[in-house]
Design a protein around this nucleic acid. Structure first.
Lengths: 319, 319
DNA sequence: ATTAAATATAGATAATCATCTATGGCATCA
DNA sequence: TGATGCCATAGATGATTATCTATATTTAAT
């Protein structure tokens, strides 16, 4: 059998003929003329090398070979219909996969979004990478992920961005610290204290450093730890003070106080970043849509800053 | 997805690319040039409406949609390979169906052939119709069967025939009859006896009648019964004499004797008849082949008269 | 930074496909 | 015995396919 030039169309036509038992009827159903169908049939029979239909008392009924071909055709056409459904699901973002890369600090909030999302779209495989800003930048350069979350995006030459969450940096001290309870604290007053800092390359550190520089201030004693958790616990146990994302603090934090330092909180925003030179997976787009629609329900209102509509518009305009 | 112009060839090419992870390699495997494969790929991706392959560190690996298409392609191609196998089996006569129509008397021998055949080809569905000559002629006119067994074929205008079995008609009398034990009996001596005859329209009757006519003889008392069995038992129990196919007699028949009538046995032959205006099913052809090869083993040698080689030759020449 | 290999693009072409309209032969049914 | 409907054949045609060769572009390896 020569399946080289066998088209799905041909099988469709054949299936229609068998199931209607008539060439003319099939032609009508398919909005074709009868000779067209006749000829297709002939071509198919030639390709198979066996007669497929025998006209038995007015009705066309398949021969042995024809019946088997009919079975095969139905299966094959069915399989491709399924594939079509799969594609639709893929395109609708109901299934598929995507990977997202988060800057460390964002891991305290994003699960609030990702949890409901993956309950709503259980068929989507989501891979989450977490690291500090520098590591995320590397992944971004290498185009390793579909979606990135940064507070300050790298060059937007090849990317588009949309803000969605406030990320205020606040100064924290252990409860009972001499500055705790004050109405107002000047930054300069902190400089005498030991500061616990994230490692260079982290976003939090970068923001804090550049703010200090703007203010013309320099730090005294420091202690560096590559983890928000470690710093938070460190502050609570009196190792020093720190400037941290508010998201890092648990809802209740009886052992810590936020100092009302002038100029703080340092306002920054997390944004979703999408490369424009890599086709965004439907699933990732679906996630953004979900975020756009459900951010308010998932995150404390005071942090919400939903500017995703604009991002989605740009993404859906030129896909 | 537009599956209208999707060919199996295209899927083959795609499957080759995915499984080799390289366009060039696939081209080599398929004895095509690389641009050909590239272009097919492009066309396929257009038809699907999604990118199918992403070049990941040197190797091409399928996207989500591409992976599903690959699965679908494999299944579909596999299904058609199976269909090819089915066709081969059909063509080899190993499977399929056919129907054969036997003249009554032949039912005493043909099972000896059909039994071994259907053990050798258990996948073939065989339908056997049995009736008297007239009924078989009607079936033949209506082209209801693949194969017919007659002793005297109808017009061979639309059919070909091949003899394979002798069918001698002999005169039988009950053991102890006055003519039994004689060295020689003249037909005229039988005419006084009552004869048990098959019905008009049966082959046995037709042969006997026309022989009598040739000899210028007329029967006396007769008794008509539409069954060889009934006649045989009737003769044994003294109802009269009969002229019957020797095949009707069991191997041992202590209550019957064959009379050595001059001019008997009436020699006739059974033949397989095949219509030429109806395509012979592969299975039926397979049965004829089997008969040609195994007749000697299945039937007492003295009855064999295998002229099927010629028939097969004609059938296989113009299929 | 060169080179080599792989991929993509462009342009060409014969084959084939998917259709159509027109027409002829056969059944079937009133 | 027409009339009607069904199927097959023939011939025509624009679209699409399956290929190629030649060349450009990208990517990987040295």
């Amino acid at each position: 059998m020569n399946s080289r030039h066998l088209t799905f169309r041909l099988l469709q036509v054949y299936a229609a003929v068998v199931s209607s038992g008539s060439v003319s009827e099939a032609a009508r159903r398919l909005h074709l003329t009868q000779p067209t169908v006749s000829q297709q049939l002939k071509r198919l029979a030639e390709a198979v090398g066996e007669p497929l239909l025998a006209s038995r008392q007015g009705r066309l009924s398949p021969t042995e070979a024809g019946a088997e071909l009919y079975r095969a055709s139905r299966e094959v056409l069915g399989r491709f219909d399924d594939f079509g459904d799969y594609l639709d699901a893929l395109r609708g973002g109901e299934r598929g996969r995507f990977s997202i890369a988060l800057v460390n600090t964002a891991q305290y909030v994003l699960p609030r979004l990702m949890g409901p999302y993956s309950r709503a779209f259980p068929e989507v495989d989501m891979t989450v990478h977490i690291g500090n800003r520098r590591q995320m930048l590397t992944r971004f350069e290498r185009q390793e992920d579909d979606l990135y979350v940064f507070s300050h995006p790298p060059s937007l030459a090849h990317a588009v961005a949309g803000r969605f969450l406030r990320n205020p940096l606040v100064a924290v001290a252990p409860r009972g610290h001499r500055l705790a309870g004050r109405e107002r604290v000047a930054m300069s007053e902190l400089l005498g204290e030991r500061m616990l800092l994230r490692e260079p390359g982290s976003a939090t550190r970068m923001l804090f450093d550049s703010w200090l520089q703007e203010q013309g201030l320099t730090l005294g004693a420091t202690l560096q730890m590559a983890s928000n958790e470690a710093i938070r616990v460190g502050v609570a146990s009196g190792m020093g003070l720190a400037v941290l994302s508010e998201h890092v603090l648990p809802p209740e934090h009886p052992d810590l106080v936020i100092l009302p330092v002038a100029g703080l909180p340092l306002e920054s925003h997390w944004q979703f970043i999408v490369r424009r030179d890599r086709r965004l997976s439907h699933a990732a787009l679906g996630f953004l849509r979900f975020a756009e629609g459900h951010l308010g329900e998932c995150v404390e209102p005071r942090f919400v800053c939903n500017e995703l509509a604009g991002l989605l518009e740009r993404l859906e305009a030129a896909p």
